[in-house]
Nucleic acid binder design. Structure first.
Lengths: 229, 229
DNA sequence: GCTTTATTATGATATTAGTCATTTTTAAAA
DNA sequence: TTTTAAAAATGACTAATATCATAATAAAGC
């Protein structure tokens, strides 16, 4: 039995809830559920996507490679996020690569079925507009953050961001696990530097480290650090 | 005698050319030409703008302040660009400050007259969508550039960007003049570092410096440098 | 299980960039 | 023009971060 978009709860977390019954029905009839294994690339920089993915379950990273092949993570996404809209809407090649950080299930919605409501449904297009503007705002903040703050500040910032975005257990264990290399690619530093900063944070009683798990011990301390106090 | 949007040539450089005669007429009836002196702030981070500015003449910088009051320039704009759309469309406070880098003339278009065609005119809304996506793409590239490239690379990149965006005389003199502080705020480095890098470039025969004017001597060399070769 | 490979961690060192102090130059104001 | 202030330039020094080498763990494959 195939699940229907009309009944799907995921859309309450994104702009698809602005669509009409009829529009949702059309999407539901042509959508396709794709499953990606952890580490698998969903779409790549330079390639085209002929639609938009709605993440049903799992987490992803959006990244770019610089001229020397060094990766920079520019965004994290999760359940409910729509990805690939840039390429699908502008008809231009992707400028980012999206990779599954966990096993991911995502519904692929063909381009036309997004573009049509974008033209006809003001509620949906306004919502999408706000989403892109919000992404742009976050990107601008990241530029300022990376170029004016230290690695220590950015690391504290990332840990708090991961907790806020992906949650933590009652004991403070952050629910997403990234490799040290990925942490470094997000903070914008060398892997060794990222490792060293995490060790310092542990030594200073801000966090605890067990394998890839990060436990927040002193959230206020991390906040102060992130703000450079 | 007031000039009319319907006849205005500036709109050929932006998305307003996707508007209908009637929509343009309405805008023309309520628009207002504002003049800003060099250095004047057009709108500020944290404040709201109740409309969009269409730059008729001049150049601007979009910047943010970090927690310690350090400025980061995130974008340069010029004649033809629409600024302030983020706040006007999302009804949220500005996340950037826009400042005139030269004397600037800009037409202020009230919010409603942008929002209405955005809902009703698919050609216009698609064009605006592409603009925001393009701004997002550039912002992502800036993140990767700042965090993976050296100050030398980014400075070479900025010089080439300024030439491409604002043009240069036959002799290679870039037509926009920025202070060393502004150059530093764009590259994401300290003012003294920016000055030193420019001196090195001059010594190496890549550029020439006369006051605030930068003359490109060896464009290919700058390109190689920007790419880290 | 063992073996191999990848990841994480840490030390030593080099490089890059930032800060502070001072001088020179340029621009603005009186 | 002279005075004052601001911007640009440079030196000396410090701090931050990257790189390279190597060791310790952990994960994956057989």
């Amino acid at each position: 039995m195939m699940s229907r978009c009309e009944q799907c709860l995921i859309k309450e977390f994104n702009n698809l809830n602005a669509l009409s019954k009829e529009e949702l029905k059309q999407i539901s009839d042509s959508k396709d559920v794709h499953v990606f294994k952890k580490g698998e690339v969903i779409f790549s920089e330079g390639k085209f996507v002929s639609g938009v993915y709605c993440i049903k379950d799992g987490v992803c990273k959006s990244s770019q490679l610089n001229a020397n092949g060094k990766e920079q993570i520019v965004k994290f996404t999760k359940k409910g996020d729509l990805i690939g809209y840039q390429s699908a809407i502008t008809n231009e090649a992707n400028t980012i690569t999206v990779t599954a950080l966990s096993d991911v299930a995502a519904c692929f919605i063909p381009q036309e079925l997004i573009k049509k409501p974008l033209d006809e449904n003001a509620k949906f297009s306004t919502a999408m507009f706000k989403t892109v503007c919000s992404d742009l705002k976050e990107a601008n903040n990241a530029i300022t953050n990376i170029s004016t703050n230290t690695v220590h500040q950015r690391m504290a910032d990332l840990i708090l961001f991961l907790k806020d975005t992906y949650g933590a257990t009652d004991a403070g264990v952050i629910k997403i696990q990234l490799s040290r290399k990925e942490i470094a690619s997000s903070v914008g530093t060398a892997t060794e530097s990222a490792i060293r900063v995490l060790s310092t944070f542990k030594k200073d009683g801000l966090i605890d480290l067990t394998g890839k798990s990060i436990t927040i011990i002193d959230e206020e301390g991390l906040k102060r650090l992130a703000e450079g106090i």
